[in-house]
């Protein structure tokens, strides 16, 4: 059997089932009939919303890194620490490589991912042609997704607060709230993003 023409077909990334592509309306959800994976779930105005959320998250990331995160006081002693201090906690001795890993997971990868999304989706939200290497940037943004662990970090902070609560008085700094907001925005942004729509828009704009 000769292979059919691949144009206009899409394959489920999870189970390889083949579908003929039709226009999927805003707020519709297209699922794979075999495995149930969401293939496409476009939302109206998503590009603009994602771009704005990513921009806001990036500003919050700068705030979260530069302002004091938590402050601890016990018996007149005070200890103020920022996110950078938490990262550098491992920098002595044998655990030093862990500092680098932590910097990547908490700050660098989330920030890189936001930048990549802005680079890809920003021009599209404005109706422009995609910038050079936009496809590469978006593919990497998707690859980085499981490794950007800002939300895991915030749960870790909550656990740590319970652990020190008995030991000393803790004051939450502005960076703490910035980070919480950042996590909420990131989760919201990822939930409205439809991968297939982004890819389709990218290639359509590129062709025109």
């Amino acid at each position: 059997m000769a292979a059919p023409d691949p144009t206009g077909l899409i394959a489920c990334p999870t189970c390889d089932a083949l579908y003929r592509e039709r226009r999927i309306g805003a707020d519709e959800v297209a699922r794979c009939r075999r495995c149930g994976t969401v293939l496409a779930a476009p939302q109206s105005g998503a590009m603009t919303r994602i771009t704005m959320l990513a921009g806001a998250a990036l500003v919050l990331m700068v705030a979260a890194v530069s302002f004091p995160f938590l402050e601890l006081s016990e018996m007149g002693l005070q200890q103020r620490s920022s996110v950078v201090d938490a990262i550098l906690a491992f920098s002595d001795g044998r655990t030093a490589p862990l500092s680098l890993a932590l910097a990547l997971l908490i700050v660098l990868l989330p920030a890189a991912r936001l930048l990549a999304l802005l680079y890809t989706l920003g021009p599209m939200a404005l109706g422009w042609q995609p910038w050079r290497h936009a496809a590469l940037a978006f593919r990497w943004a998707e690859k980085m997704r499981p490794w950007a662990m800002a939300e895991v970090f915030i749960v870790g902070v909550a656990v740590a607060l319970v652990k020190v609560a008995g030991l000393a008085t803790v004051t939450l700094g502005p960076a703490f709230w910035a980070f919480c907001l950042l996590v909420l925005i990131t989760v919201r942004k990822d939930s409205i993003m439809c991968r297939l729509t982004v890819w389709k828009t990218l290639s359509e704009r590129h062709a025109s």
């Binding site: 938590l70 018996m75 990262i87 020190v164 803790v170």
Partner: peptide, 12 residues
């Protein structure tokens, strides 16, 4: 992450 935050905070 818990260990990182505790180590950064509790340095008295």
């Amino acid at each position: 992450f818990v260990v990182a935050i505790l180590s950064a905070l509790v340095q008295f």
